[in-house]
């Protein structure tokens, strides 16, 4: 007996909201990256759930691609984080506000 698709969606939304919560409340850039990862994976859950719902494999393939993109994002994100640290001696996202205007 398969689980109803809306519970998958609920799960994905919960995951997304948790990630969002992290982004909105945290100041550590590393935690930012993790939160973003959570949100990406929320999207993955949705993709896979709806692939099953529609009986089509495309969603699953896209989930794989999303993972690859997440890896790329993390690579760049960590690089930025390093530079951030090197320039500000801190990974607090509230510190580098000099580029606004």
């Amino acid at each position: 007996m398969a689980v109803e698709v809306q519970y998958y969606v609920l799960l994905s939304m919960a995951l997304f909201s948790i990630g969002l919560f992290g982004i909105l409340t945290r100041r550590n850039a590393l935690l930012f990256l993790m939160s973003v990862e959570l949100m990406l994976n929320a999207a993955n859950i949705n993709l896979i759930a709806f692939a099953f719902y529609h009986g089509n494999l495309t969603g699953q393939v896209f989930a794989l691609f999303t993972m690859a993109l997440a890896a790329a994002e993390v690579a760049i994100g960590l690089g930025i984080l390093l530079v951030l640290y090197r320039n500000f001696r801190d990974v607090d996202v509230t510190v580098p506000t000099t580029m606004r205007w």
Binding site: I23, L24, R27, V93, T94, P96, T97, M99, W101
Partner: peptide, 17 residues
């Protein structure tokens, strides 16, 4: 209006949400 641009990612994200 430019005060909206705080430079804090959190604020931007909050506005988006």
């Amino acid at each position: 209006l430019k005060r909206v641009q705080t430079g804090l990612v959190t604020n931007y994200a909050a506005l988006l949400v």
